[in-house]
């Protein structure tokens, strides 16, 4: 089940994965993945544990090499793209030294990327941690450490920002603040790819959702397209005196329900159902709702056991 929304363009893709395979011993973590991400897209990578999300991200960052296929990032090898600062990442855990201060950690990153001191102040402010610059990393909360990783990732001013389950372990407020910072940043046109298991995050922040299962893409589209693909949508309308057989006969309706004067029609092509209701019946108060992404996720990832 694949829904492709990506037209091929001549311009360099932000990410170009073709036929990527990665095996660990007898386990195939990524099984022939093709993915093209255009500059400026905000893409969520979703999938159950062991689906191959982190393996894919590691290959995008040059932390591991595919056994087959090619990985290109802005038309460079991942290693070159990292070294040039075209791509940077906020990893889930680790990667910080407790006995550096927040400001020193970012300053070291700046030294390595050949950026001036002013860039350090700037990213600290943008990540919202300018006020704790002199605090030791070991004394920072999980959310503060994550924002420090974000500041480090911003330092090279990358074209592509990769986030691997970036809000794991944060409280609700921390997650909200973190995503606000990311969203502000994405408005500047940066390409963002994030892996998350918080489905509402994918729904709220991604332009495009890529479902991965067993190392393959099982669905790819906007959050609402993917939701429709997985479980259809529901048209609710007020239609007094409707009979169930009549409703079920409408083209595109997969199941129907009548509760008093209200009818519920489930189907994939809800536009056609709505058009039929509005043009050939006295139905009014129409409402089209998607199931949430969580249900779509469960449907898509459980079907082919």
């Amino acid at each position: 089940m694949t829904l492709t929304t990506v037209p091929s363009t001549a311009a360099a893709a932000a990410v170009e994965l073709s036929g990527v395979v990665k095996r660990f011993g007898t386990v195939t973590a990524v099984a022939g993945l093709d993915l093209r991400i255009r500059p400026g897209e905000v893409v969520a990578l979703l999938g159950p544990n062991g689906a191959g999300k982190t393996t894919t991200i590691d290959m995008l960052l040059g932390l591991s090499r595919p056994d087959a296929g090619t990985v290109r990032v802005y038309d460079h090898t991942p290693q070159d793209a990292v070294a040039l600062g075209l791509v940077s990442a906020v990893m889930q855990t680790g990667g910080l030294l407790k006995d550096y201060t927040v400001e020193e950690t970012v300053r070291l990153t700046a030294v390595l990327f050949g950026k001036p001191r002013s860039a350090v102040t700037e990213v600290l402010e943008r990540a919202g941690i300018a006020d704790i610059g002199s605090r030791l990393v070991g004394k920072c909360s999980g959310g503060q450490q994550q924002r420090l990783r974000f500041a480090m990732a911003l330092l090279p001013d990358p074209e592509l920002l990769i986030l691997d389950e970036p809000t794991t372990g944060m409280d609700v407020g921390g997650r909200h603040d973190f995503w606000n910072a990311i969203r502000d940043d994405a408005r500047r046109g940066r390409t963002v790819v994030f892996a998350t298991h918080y489905l509402e995050e994918a729904d709220a922040y991604a332009d495009r959702v890529v479902f991965v299962r067993r190392g393959q893409i099982v669905a790819d589209g906007t959050a609402s397209e993917v939701k429709a693909l997985a479980s259809g949508r529901t048209v609710r309308a007020t239609l007094p005196g409707a009979s169930l057989p009549d409703l079920s006969a409408i083209s595109g309706v997969e199941s129907a329900e009548v509760r008093g004067d209200t009818v519920y029609l489930h189907g994939r092509d809800t536009d056609a159902i709505a058009r039929h209701l509005l043009t050939t019946t006295p139905a009014r108060d129409l409402e089209i709702t998607s199931r949430n992404l969580e249900e779509a996720f469960l449907t898509l990832t459980a079907d082919a056991a």
Partner: peptide, 17 residues
């Protein structure tokens, strides 16, 4: 050793170092 245990070496892989 400490830096590898903390994942810092991996973080440094995301820089030009």
């Amino acid at each position: 050793s400490i830096e590898r245990a903390a994942g810092w070496s991996r973080q440094l892989r995301l820089t030009p170092l």
